[in-house]
Each structure stands twice: as C-alpha cells, then as structure tokens.
C-alpha cells in the first residue's frame, strides 16, 4: 500500500467572477521512504499541491488517501489531528514562534499531541540534538542564524515521527552553503527511512532528490526517477551524519 495516493486532484480558487485553476487534475502515488522534489515555474501550483498533500487545505475535487485514510473530505479538526500525527512541515521562512525558544518550538507539536511534559521535553531535546542544536536549546529564533533556524524547523517537523516531511522552498531564504547543510540533513533523514517531499524551483536543489515531479499550469508535466541524485557537499553531509549518529 502506498503512503500517498491521489487521484485527479483539483483545486480552484474563486475570486469574484474569476476562477483560478491552480491544480487541474493531478494523480500521484508516493511510497514510504521516497525522497521527492516537486519542481515547476512560479505560479504552476507547487505550493497548492503541497498544501493539499499536507492537509492544510482541502481539494475542490478528487481523491486523496494518506496512510490508508481518505482525507479529502475531513473537517478542520480532523485535518488538524492528521497534520499533527502524520505531517512535518518545513517552510521557506522558517515559521518559528518568535517569542519561544528552540526547545519550546520543537515541543509544540507534542503539546498538541497531548504528550506528558517529561516525555515531551526529553523527546524535543533528543531531536534538537540530532539536528546539531543541543547548545542552542534556549535561544529564541532571533538569536539564531538562518541555517540554525531552519534546523529548529526541521527538528520541529521531525519530533512527532511523521509519515512525511513536507518542505516548501526550504533553502529559499538561505545562502547556498547553509542550504547545502539543510539538504545534507534531508539526505541523512532519507537514508534513515523518512519520506521527504521538497518543493523547489531550483534545479540544483531538485537534483538531490531521487524522484523529480515537474508541474506546469496545474498539471504534472513529468514524473521521473533521478538516476544520479547529487550528494550534498561533503562537509554538510559529514556534519549532519555526525550529529545524527551521535
């Protein structure tokens, strides 16, 4: 059974008299443990697709089965629960809570999952350590570099052991070196069996994935295996491998 199965998914935005067809009928099947890049020009519907895959939004029509559950017609609260349990988000602009320190940011999904505080804290510390931020637990986002912020975001996405990590332009706000670091982190996670979907419009970034889906005008234009995934730069790999094993 596939982790994700979508069939003829559409999303329309109605704005007054005008209707924008952001997705015109997308069918996909994603297996557990895949590392996928979704590519396409600006306005092609990448983020729209990602919002649907991440259960942040509901499709106008079509079928979506996540982990054996049909989620296309779930209500707000049910979707919130699915997001909490199954999905980890990484955003371009980090989207951390500015007034909370790293630890609290990472703990948040566990709070909403109702985990007891002792266990929750331990889990959050462990995950922060894995992304190499053991020393930055009590720093607020504005006391961290962009790369470090994105690592906190990755830790937050991972802390609930989600079925999928969804990243929308995760390197968009980072310089290339720090971007490589994050991609290295993804590679290591992927090797450990996590399912990762990265949305990007940069060919360089997409080349790290093992499967590349290209979108144009709300339709899948190409869906192909990447025969030679690019390894993240040596130093980044080493660093994240080190922290992840340590």
């Amino acid at each position: 059974m596939s982790l994700i199965q979508i069939h003829d998914l559409t999303r329309r935005y109605v704005m007054g008299t005008e209707t924008v067809h952001a997705l015109r009928g997308v069918s996909l099947s994603i297996e557990r443990g895949e590392y996928i890049a979704i590519m396409g020009p600006s306005g092609s519907g990448k983020s729209t697709l990602m919002n649907l895959l991440g259960c942040l939004d509901s499709p106008s029509s079509g079928y979506y089965e996540l982990n054996g559950v049909n989620v296309a017609h779930m209500d707000d609260n049910e979707l919130a629960e699915i997001r909490n349990r199954e999905i980890g988000f990484v955003f371009q602009s980090f989207n951390l809570l500015p007034r909370s320190d790293s630890l609290h940011n990472v703990e948040l999904p566990l709070i909403y999952a109702g985990m007891p505080s002792e266990e929750r804290r331990e889990k959050a510390i462990q995950t922060l350590t894995h992304v190499g931020l053991a020393e930055r637990m009590h720093h607020k986002p504005n006391e961290l570099s962009g790369g470090q912020r994105q690592r906190v975001a990755v830790a937050r996405a991972l802390v609930n052991n989600p079925s999928i990590v969804l990243a929308d332009e995760p390197t968009g706000n980072l310089d290339s070196r720090t971007g490589e670091e994050i991609l290295g982190l993804f590679e290591t996670l992927s090797r450990k069996g996590n399912t990762i979907i990265v949305v990007t419009h940069e060919e360089d970034v997409a080349q790290h994935a093992r499967r590349i889906i290209r979108i144009r005008d709300g339709l899948i234009a190409a869906d192909e295996v990447n025969p030679h995934p690019r390894a993240a730069m040596k130093f980044a790999q080493e660093q994240s491998a080190l922290t992840l094993n340590g």
């Binding site: 707000d76 919130a80 629960e81 997001r83 809570l97």
Partner: peptide, 11 residues
Amino acid sequence: GIRKAIGAKRR
C-alpha cells in the same frame, strides 16, 4: 497559522 499547521485544533 503556524500553530494550526503543526496540529492546533480550533478549540
């Protein structure tokens, strides 16, 4: 939005 994305319900 952030809180909702990571699983906060309406309640």
